[in-house]
């Protein structure tokens, strides 16, 4: 199939099925770009999530642009982002017309409630694969990465110390550079 058409369809599906905002799109992006089409290696996907955390904008738009550019240049960027927002445009315009009608909203609320456990399970699965990439397997454990992971998790989960994801990532980057400089 034509590459641009494939990019369009992949990001259309990501837009259509990412219900629940934010991280909900991440497992879908992983499935389309890494597993199905192999446009990114798992490592590049992990870097993309990192980059998306540090730049403004929704992760899906960030990914559509990043992957579109890598696979097919500027036309790839346009096709992938267009595909990604098209479901939103269609659905929002329908909703804007129906917005007074109560029943559609109730149905959407039920669907949202119903898929939320799946969304959480999908983000969990994607998180586990990111962890696996970062720290390696049990037999070849990257102890530095494991220590960074544990520290970052505790900081992210702490209610007393609130550090933004960007701050945590900067510490991670400095840690990685320091570890390299020490010659490990």
């Amino acid at each position: 199939m034509n590459l641009l058409l494939q990019l369009f369809l992949s990001f259309f599906q990501i837009g259509l099925f990412s219900i629940g905002g934010g991280y909900a799109a991440m497992p879908l992006i992983q499935a389309q770009t890494v597993e199905i089409h192999k446009w990114l290696t798992p490592l590049e996907f992990a870097d993309l999530v990192t980059i998306a955390e540090m730049t403004p904008g929704p992760i899906a738009i960030n990914s559509a642009t990043f992957v579109g550019m890598r696979v097919a240049g500027i036309s790839g960027v346009l096709v992938a982002t267009f595909g990604n927002v098209l479901p939103s445009v269609i659905i929002m315009l329908i909703f804007a017309k129906l917005y007074e009608r109560y029943s559609e909203q109730t149905l959407m609320k039920h669907v949202l409630e119903g898929v939320r456990p799946t969304v959480v399970a999908a983000i969990f699965t994607a998180g586990l694969s990111l962890l696996n990439l970062a720290v390696g397997s049990i037999s070849a454990l990257d102890l530095f990465a494991l220590a960074v992971f544990v520290a970052a998790f505790l900081f992210a989960n702490s209610k007393k110390i609130t550090l933004s994801p960007i701050t945590l990532l900067l510490f991670g980057a400095l840690g990685g550079i320091g570890w390299e400089a020490l010659g490990f």
Binding site: D47, V49, T50, I123, L131, A152, F153, L169
Partner: peptide, 20 residues
């Protein structure tokens, strides 16, 4: 590469903390 090495572990932590 070294910076991403550190950040990859942080991103895994952020995603799993969100999951939690």
């Amino acid at each position: 590469k070294a910076a991403f090495h550190g950040m990859r572990a942080v991103v895994a932590a952020i995603v799993l903390q969100v999951t939690w």
